[in-house]
Design a protein around this nucleic acid. Structure first.
Lengths: 125, 125
DNA sequence: CTTGCCTCTGACGTCAACGTCAGGTTTTAG
DNA sequence: CTAAAACCTGACGTTGACGTCAGAGGCAAG
């Protein structure tokens, strides 16, 4: 039995998390530094993550892609963890939602313009 | 009659372009530096833009918002200016279109997740 | 034992679209 | 004429999410 196995059944090291979530090891350490992710430590100091770290990292990636900062994600994490929110958090949630919606609309407009050009250039080779 | 007026009827200075397009003066100079925008010069060296610089700058902003770089926009500008495109340009156009479409889908997914949380937290105050 | 991969902690580097400051010229308003 | 705006050319600073390198340990396998 390896030390990693002895440390706990559901615990994985950082490389495993990174591979499973499709990000770099550096990124996972960065998330911890930003207060998004916590990990136990093995006696030798290596990070040990629970399995739910993987979907969590995937979720971070989604939020980053949506334009949220680490800080904002950290502020809104309690909404997921506890399901409880105060007025300020609800306001932030709605603000982010509106911002993303506006971004979607902008992207759709840009997409339409590109499609228009593509059609034009396809009929005028 | 001011010098600007004497320089030509349809020509405006950089501040006017920036205000009308809703960007900073610095941004307009930056676009020129990136090869996106050209301007005549008054005898004293001030930039003089034609009116169509304003919608052009707005267009740049849209493309930036869609995630295109200055370099990419510069590469694709001939598609607008001349309506003519080679195979490489058409490939880039489609690649950008697909990238934007994927981004829209990602944002929509993120939006759905946020909405879900908002509904949950609204019913569980 | 030792080879080779994984992990650790710092700390500096990157990239893109500007912001900002310095120091000087130009144009406009009164 | 004069003071205030507006403009000019550099050139360094900013921000965020990492990349990358250095140097030092940790761990499974042969």
């Amino acid at each position: 039995m390896t030390i990693t196995e002895a440390a706990g059944e559901g615990l994985v090291r950082i490389g495993q998390v990174a591979r499973d979530a499709g990000v770099s090891v550096r990124a996972v350490r960065y998330y911890e530094q930003q207060g998004l992710l916590t990990a136990e430590r093995s006696p030798s100091g290596q990070r040990l993550y629970r399995q739910d770290a993987v979907p969590l990292v995937r979720f971070f990636q989604q939020m980053y892609a949506a334009g949220l900062t680490s800080r904002r994600i950290a502020e809104l994490l309690p909404c997921w963890d506890s399901g409880h929110t105060d007025a300020e958090q609800r306001a932030m949630l709605r603000a982010e939602r509106d911002r993303i919606q506006a971004k979607v609309d902008d992207l759709q407009t840009a997409l339409d313009r590109l499609d228009e050009v593509i059609r034009t250039t396809d009929t005028h080779p």
